[in-house]
């Protein structure tokens, strides 16, 4: 995807975010107008800044959209998004990054806090390094044990803080 195609795609996402912020801001204004807040004037409402920001974002991302659409054409822009999606599935770098992120997400969202720190950290490190083929398996296990040991020593013993 070239930079104009990227601009086209991201501007669509940004327009959606802008509309969400704008509608959310209006919702805040309407909610704050009711008791117990009873702030009926927009200029002092907590919804003021979100509305301004949403409107500004809408204008700027529309400019970005129009600029990129002018250069690549509307149809080509949408075709590029579909084409990029198909290409991304086949791209080995993107696949590595996505699977790497999934391993990180499993560690950060699911494992952490459920098991002792040393166990979660060790599982994560071994899993991701094995996936990335960072080294031989026994070396990965040794490195992971050393790293987790060093972190526990530094933080739990050295700084006296409890790890997740």
């Amino acid at each position: 995807m070239d930079s104009k195609q990227k601009d086209f795609t991201i501007s669509l996402v940004l327009i959606a975010v802008a509309l969400w912020a704008l509608i959310g801001g209006i919702g805040i204004y309407l909610k704050a107008a009711r008791p117990p807040y009873s702030i009926t004037r927009l200029s002092i409402s907590p919804g003021l800044l979100p509305i301004i920001l949403g409107a500004l974002l809408l204008v700027l991302s529309s400019v970005l959209f129009i600029k990129s659409a002018r250069e690549i054409g509307l149809k080509n822009g949408f075709l590029a998004i579909v084409g990029w999606g198909k290409g991304a599935v086949k791209n080995s770098d993107i696949r590595s990054m996505v699977i790497g992120m999934l391993i990180m997400a499993v560690y950060g969202f699911l494992l952490i806090g459920k098991l002792p720190y040393w166990a979660t950290a060790l599982i994560y490190l071994v899993a991701i390094m094995v996936y990335l083929r960072a080294s031989k398996f026994w070396k990965i296990v040794v490195i992971s044990c050393a790293v987790v040991g060093a972190i526990i020593l530094l933080f739990q013993v050295g700084f006296n803080v409890s790890l997740p």
């Binding site: 950060g108 994560y124 490190l125 390094m129 960072a134 790890l163």
Partner: peptide, 17 residues
């Protein structure tokens, strides 16, 4: 590929603390 997964561990610890 060895260093960056370790850095992520530190990112998690840094955010949590």
């Amino acid at each position: 590929k060895i260093l960056m997964p370790v850095v992520f561990l530190l990112c998690v610890v840094g955010s949590y603390l």
